[in-house]
Design a protein around this nucleic acid. Structure first.
Length: 455
RNA sequence: GAGGUUAUAGCUCAGUUGGUUAGAGCACUGGUUUGUGGUGCCGGGGGUCGUGGGUUCGAGCCCCAUUAGCCUCCCCA
């Protein structure tokens, strides 16, 4: 007999945790549907040909690969062993666990292109797996909640994503958050303007640290990353950008005036701001963050990230626009934009802030009916059945156990009411209900009982 | 992939410079006489000290290895 253990980076979700997780899922799903997104599910397992090469070299390493069935090693010869694991992999594994929801979505779109109403809006809530090193807020199995629109370049989609994010976090009770927005085109414009075309990634990695290490250190790092003194001199404007969007767009336009792509990026950014306002979003918590580089490899327009404020786990959502995701599956020219919420991190944030609704602490069972043995059992069974027919979640204690035990059970399960049905109550034709929180007991008739439990 | 840190009862942790049968709180369980939980009182079970080696007369404690958790970096939800 071996000791039970969990696979690294995975977790069980017991009932009390599931109640809270379900709450988060429900809030997200509700808002996605409200904005016209339709559900989609794809398999946990995908062919490696679909997955490999989509997330960069590091992503390939983080993919969980599934060993082929049967004698998986039958095609391996000594030559392969010498050549190393990469060549062996092709022979022993052809499937893997999905790494995110976006790539399987792209595959689905390509495979079903003729049946889809374009633009196609779908949401998808499923687990994904990454062979990452687990640490705070990082698991090897976690859920993503994605909403994407493909088949349109309209910036209305970006603006709607901003609105959805606000609504979702408001519904969850997360009031302190920031939706950070950047634009790949602005980044390209900046590198073009400062004379370091194509170095967006290096730029982002360095300037991302400005809050931590300061401007001087960032400039030092830029030098190390191959930027010239002149490049850095031209970058100065970036460090003086206003924190509010008051003059932001004018300053950016002026700075990037010689970069066509940069200006397009600024226009897109400004347009998103305008559309969000036109949609009537109150107190938008959106900020332009030029250091935001997430998933730069495939984003081509807007880049989003949501940070929860005042908590140890920051990033709870990320997304952006990608112009050519379906291109690798032979369907070029399809633009999409999407957002992904990390439920596990949202959970951790809400737990840290202690903002889960208190109702969630109660059992979904509203009332437990006592069991006093065969004399009274038929009345208990009849009653619990009546309660259920009235839409009241209820259960009968299945054994003729001591009262103490039955009450302990109800208490442990956080069941708010216990219905005591013994010979005395049956004789008097009353229902004795105990409120487990206050300890108060009241005698009711049938109608009063139903009314009370339905309240 | 690099670094740091921890591992003792179901959980959170004590455990002296290495020295008899390794402790506490919580949890669990039994009792506290009629049909009442969460607060009282009395009792009970439970640990080959992460795993494998080594040093020693003797190791929970020292040394090496290994595994797992947590944290930082990289990257990400």
């Amino acid at each position: 007999m071996s000791k039970p253990s969990l696979a690294r980076g995975t977790r069980d979700f017991g009932p009390e945790i599931m109640v809270k997780r379900t709450f988060i899922f429900d809030q997200i799903k509700k808002v996605y549907q409200k904005f016209g997104f339709l559900p989609l599910e794809t398999p946990a397992i995908e062919n490696l040909s679909v997955l490999m090469g989509k997330y960069g070299e590091e992503g390939d390493q983080l993919l969980f690969k599934i060993l082929n069935s049967g004698d998986f090693a039958k095609d391996i010869n000594s030559e392969d062993l010498e050549k190393g694991s990469k060549d062996i992999l092709r022979k022993i594994s052809e499937k893997g666990l999905k790494y995110d929801l976006t790539v399987p979505f792209a595959r689905y779109v390509v495979m079903n292109r003729h049946n889809l109403a374009m633009p196609f809006k779908r949401f998808q809530i499923q687990p994904v797996w990454r062979a990452d090193r687990p640490q705070k807020g990082r698991y090897r199995e976690f859920y993503q909640c994605d909403a994407d629109v493909v088949g349109t370049e309209s910036l209305i989609c970006e603006a709607e994503i901003v609105c959805m994010l606000h609504e979702i976090f408001a519904n969850l009770g997360i009031t302190e958050f920031a939706v950070k927005i950047n634009n790949r085109k602005i980044l390209s414009g900046i590198t073009e303007t400062i004379g370091a075309t194509g170095k967006e990634v290096e730029l982002c990695v360095a300037i991302d640290k400005i809050d931590k290490i300061g401007q001087a250190k960032v400039e030092e790092e830029l030098l190390q990353r191959g930027f010239s003194e002149e490049n850095i001199e031209n970058l100065k404007t970036l460090f003086t950008l206003p924190s509010s969007e008051e003059n932001l767009f004018e300053i950016l336009k002026n700075w990037l005036k010689n970069s066509e792509i940069g200006l397009k990026g600024v226009y897109e950014l400004e347009e998103i701001w305008n559309l969000v306002e036109a949609m009537g979003l109150k107190n938008p918590r959106i900020t332009f963050d030029p250091s935001l580089a997430r998933g730069l490899s495939y984003y081509t327009g807007a880049i989003f990230e949501v940070k929860a404020l005042n908590v140890s786990i920051g990033s709870i959502s990320g997304g952006g626009r990608y112009d050519n995701l379906t291109g690798t599956f032979g369907m070029p020219g399809l633009s999409g934009v999407g957002i992904s919420l990390g439920v596990d991190r949202i959970y951790d944030v809400m737990e840290e802030l202690n903002i889960f609704p208190t109702e969630l602490k109660h059992s979904s069972t509203k009332v437990m009916v006592t069991n006093f043995g065969k004399e009274t059992l038929s009345k208990s069974l009849e009653t619990v059945s009546l309660l259920r027919n009235n839409g009241i979640n209820s259960e009968v204690y299945p054994e003729d156990a001591k009262m103490k035990k039955q009450f302990e059970y109800a208490d442990k399960k956080n069941i708010p009411f216990v219905l005591i049905l013994g010979s005395e109550e049956i004789e008097q034709n009353i229902y004795l209900v105990k409120n487990m929180k206050t300890g108060e007991q009241t005698s009711l008739n049938y109608d009063q009982l139903i009314e009370m439990l339905n309240a």
